[in-house]
């Protein structure tokens, strides 16, 4: 039982990261019906930018831990968001009226480009965050070891998701995003600037992905240029699992995928962990063809 709860918390910590990245996939998909395969690489850029800013500006030394972290998070969010907007402009906007899959191939090309650019800038070796930046306290709750940071990671990702959800549901821009997701043409007729909505989505999604990258870098300590593929694929799976296009779905999908992986590794087989996760995904899709929280919509290609 103790081990079960330990594994559950392990899974939730990983799942929180998946969920944050999945939000980027799901928002872009909601509005553009585009699978942004380069999103995982934006996540990696977040991790690398965070490392560079942290070491070159020595933010935590100069501003103290809390303020330094806040500044760092804001800078990474801003930079990755700008990168996302550039990506949209260069690789996706020219293809907006084209067959959907053309944009997918463009996204794949962009992903290869971004990944290799990172390799050439930083070198192919693993990059390592300086240690001793984060407090390493470990909470001991009834014999369960929970590193403080893991708890904070889960809390931070859930908090960000709630903020995003409120933003989408309650603000004017959020309403515009939802409108554009339902019907771009009609939204345009209602006077919504769809280009701005798309830009907004490409700022928000990458910003969240960037934070996820920074969190992975800070907590796990090592980053490498190919990690976007692994995390991106997991997050995409999570987004589909929850029902792509649906924001709470991405959260549920992410956390659930993390837990499935941890429990699969614990009670079935570590080596088959990813295969188990995919099997569960396929089973869920057979039962609910549009994911857990996805709405049944007519396919328009």
């Amino acid at each position: 039982m103790e081990e079960f709860i330990q594994q559950l918390t392990n899974g939730l910590a990983v799942g929180g990261i998946y969920a944050l990245i999945a939000l980027g996939y799901t928002m872009v998909y909601g509005v553009l019906k585009l699978i942004n395969f380069a999103h995982g690489d934006l996540f990696t850029y977040g991790a690398y930018l965070g490392l560079t800013l942290l070491t070159s500006l020595a933010l935590t030394d100069r501003l103290g831990f809390t303020l330094g972290m806040v500044v760092l998070v804001l800078m990474v969010m801003g930079l990755v968001a700008v990168l996302g907007a550039i990506l949209e402009r260069a690789a996706y906007r020219p293809l907006r009226e084209s067959p959907r899959l053309s944009a997918v191939v463009s996204a794949l090309g962009a992903s290869i480009f971004l990944q290799n650019a990172l390799m050439l800038i930083y070198g192919a070796r693993f990059q390592v965050y300086p240690d001793n930046i984060l407090p390493t306290a470990t909470l001991n709750i009834f014999g369960l070891y929970l590193p403080l940071m893991r708890v904070l990671i889960v809390l931070a990702s859930v908090l960000m998701m709630i903020v995003l959800y409120v933003f989408i549901q309650k603000t004017r821009i959020g309403t515009a995003i939802r409108a554009a997701a339902i019907d771009q043409g009609a939204a345009r007729l209602m006077g919504i600037d769809v280009n701005r909505v798309i830009l907004m989505v490409f700022l928000l999604g990458p910003a969240l992905g960037g934070i996820a990258g920074l969190m992975v870098g800070l907590y796990y300590g090592q980053v490498n240029f190919t990690m976007g593929w692994v995390y991106g694929m997991k997050a995409f799976t999570a987004a589909i699992l929850g029902g792509i296009g649906n924001i709470p779905g991405a959260m549920v999908g992410g956390l659930l995928l993390g837990v499935i992986e941890a429990l699969g590794a614990a009670y079935l087989s570590i080596a088959w962990k990813d295969a188990i996760a995919f099997c569960v995904l396929i089973l869920i899709l057979i039962i609910r063809p549009t994911g857990l929280l996805g709405e049944r919509v007519a396919d328009k290609i």
């Binding site: 392990n10 992975v216 796990y220 490498n224 692994v230 941890a262 614990a266 570590i270």
Partner: peptide, 11 residues
């Protein structure tokens, strides 16, 4: 190439 091996370590 994953970052989180706590599930495996726990096992």
């Amino acid at each position: 190439k994953e970052s989180d091996y706590t599930a495996i370590l726990t096992k």
